[in-house]
Design a protein around this nucleic acid. Sequence first.
DNA 1: ATCTTAAACGGAAAACATTTCCATTTAAGA
DNA 2: TCTTAAATGGAAATGTTTTCCGTTTAAGAT
Lengths: 143, 143
Amino acid sequence: MPHSDEVIRAAGLKVTPVRRAIVALFAESLRPLTPRDVHVRLLEQFSRSGLPGVYRNLETLAERGILFRIAGFGQVRRYALCPKPGSGHQHHIICVACGRIDRIDECLYHDGMMVGGYRLLSHTMQFEGVCASCLSETNNGQS
Amino acid sequence: MPHSDEVIRAAGLKVTPVRRAIVALFAESLRPLTPRDVHVRLLEQFSRSGLPGVYRNLETLAERGILFRIAGFGQVRRYALCPKPGSGHQHHIICVACGRIDRIDECLYHDGMMVGGYRLLSHTMQFEGVCASCLSETNNGQS
DNA sequence: ATCTTAAACGGAAAACATTTCCATTTAAGA
DNA sequence: TCTTAAATGGAAATGTTTTCCGTTTAAGAT
Ligand SMILES: [Mn+2]
Ligand SMILES: [Mn+2]
Ligand SMILES: [Zn+2]
Ligand SMILES: [Zn+2]
């Protein structure tokens, strides 16, 4: 009924209850989710949800530009909703103090540019830092 | 006998035959090596080399600043020799045409700078592109 | 309202990379 | 030599992701 169906259908995918729930989950979530996160949440609604189905759906949704696959924080994969379906790659930063993950909108690299003698085709980055609220709390923001 | 012993000893580690061979391997290798790569090469000299020992050694050598651990190219870890023991982090680029991996020496990010409202503590990056020699071969170097 | 079929599904098992455990060996300093 | 903490190999565990396969289902056509 909500908005998820449109997105799924527009991507040329079947609208299934599981898939609808997954997209809704990301639409509501403020943070990237791991396959395990998604699976746990799905089990609340579908007692027989399987992890392979979750992986399949997340990959499919990423291929269709609905989700973005985040790698590089540990060996655990995460996915985030694309701001608009089909919008490009993303970069993220994790706060070492509170674990929060945010999307970084600026990027200093652009595909096509020359880097170390290579013509750049794609790039991924992972940042670690201290978020604004943790900075102010712990007062190690300056000096 | 060669230079490896000094490096190992200077790091406060025992000089064992396996460890000496590992450091020598990296000193001779022009490219980063996976734990599996290292293990295969070790088996040529030590028929009873174990993979856990390889992992242990690579991590130990990385902790001591002799090797640098490269993550983010697929789910396979790689290690490269640090230009000088204790030199900082590295970034790498892989050629999608020939698979070659090179170290990138310039970097546009610096820890301490502000990124997306966070104070940056560390960062990793992985680049994909086409290397100079593949660029000239396939003549898709310009426009 | 059925029929048909490719897509999607769940469950079990496999595939991999990495880690843990533990008993044995060994480098290095006394 | 002697002593001991560090290092080692092998087996097994871990944790994530993938593959296989038989069953179910969404969606378009009848
Ligand atoms: Mn970018
Ligand atoms: Mn850097
Ligand atoms: Zn924080
Ligand atoms: Zn190349």
